[in-house]
Nucleic acid binder design. Structure first.
Length: 307
DNA sequence: AATCATCCCAACCGCACCAGA
DNA sequence: GTCTGGTGCGGTTGGGATGAT
């Protein structure tokens, strides 16, 4: 990044920071319930934007001394010109030990997120407790970018699709849930030096039969394929890691196209299409994550409704 | 090499909840 | 009961990095 870009960025940050802080400040003042305090003056003087190395060190030292709490005291003690919120966020998302910073989600982690999102909804903090070294922000960002990618694929797919006759798919029921026997406590050790380890219950601790009507991975039904599967020119064949039944079915010749129902949530993205065209002919290698496919398929009814 | 699109991620915002005064 | 500050969470934004054309 050159200097002019850096300067511009700094200016933008300062501008947005002051606007935002002033807006909140004014809002509180307009309530007429409080008088201006010295703390309000401090709030106006808060630093925002990217953290510097020295700030990180101050924050780390504070946590070492007092633990991961009392975030606001960092400001009140004059150690940093950052809000307590900002300090906490920095610690939780970047400075906390054993974070998998910079590492992409593994296939197992992706499966876990998808599985738990289907179970809990957008409870990123809760989901993150099942993923050692991942923060709620990590999970949230992962999910968000995945949704964008899917939406784009879906829109381009529905725009170019033509409907014709189609082979039918038989849907299969659930597979085994991913084995997440390693809890975060095991990963971090029972007594973290910062004393801030949560102890989530690994999902494998819940017997599958007690999870009804929740359907364990995959949340969306897999296709029983008699031929290789492609979606928008992307090859999903053989990319489903766990299901051994797919391996048995691979290698057969592909013919024509198929239609797969689109989940209602994706229909809400702007398409009126109820199905997505699946090309089962050409095979192209790509690193597209296989699990994305599941979002475009109608969920199965709960097992209790299976006939 | 330049431009554009997409991905990735750090950080902020607004809101809700809770505990203590 | 109300107010206030602290904390946590989910949503959003903005910009650098990377890949595609």
């Amino acid at each position: 990044m050159n200097h002019s870009t850096q300067n511009l960025q700094t200016i933008k940050q300062r501008r947005s920071s002051s606007i935002s802080i002033n807006r909140r400040f004014s809002k509180r003042m307009m309530n007429g319930k409080r008088r201006m305090t010295s703390q309000d003056d401090e709030m106006r003087d808060m630093k925002k934007g990217p953290w510097k190395f020295e700030e990180d060190q101050v924050l780390i030292n504070h946590v070492k001394k007092y633990g991961a709490r009392d975030w606001s005291s960092i400001r009140s003690k004059g150690l940093l010109r950052r809000t307590g919120k900002s300090c906490r966020l920095r610690w939780v998302n970047k400075l906390r030990p054993h974070l998998k910073t910079g590492l992409k989600f593994t296939a197992e982690e992706e499966r876990t997120v998808i599985d738990l999102q289907a179970q809990f909804g957008n409870k990123w903090a809760k989901i993150a407790t099942y993923l050692a070294g991942r923060t709620d922000n990590d999970v949230k960002n992962f999910w968000s970018s995945r949704q964008k990618r899917l939406a784009r694929i879906l829109s381009s797919s529905t725009a170019s699709s033509s409907t014709s006759q189609i082979p039918t798919f038989d849907f299969l029921p659930s597979l085994e849930a991913p084995n997440l026997s390693q809890s975060r406590e095991e990963e971090f050790g029972a007594n973290s030096q910062f004393g801030e380890v949560a102890s989530p219950s690994p999902i494998s601790a819940v017997p599958v039969e007690q999870q009804q009507p929740y359907i364990s991975f995959p949340q969306f039904p897999l296709l029983q394929l008699d031929y290789p599967l492609l979606l928008e020119g992307q090859d999903f064949t053989g990319r489903f890691e766990a299901p051994s039944f797919l391996d048995d079915e691979l290698g057969h010749s592909a013919l024509g196209t198929a239609q797969v129902p689109i989940a209602p949530s994706y229909q809400a993205l702007g398409t009126s299409e109820s199905h997505i065209e699946v090309d089962i002919n050409s095979l192209i290698e790509d690193d597209f994550p296989p699990i994305d496919l599941f979002d475009e398929i109608e969920p199965l009814p709960s097992p209790s409704h299976w006939s």
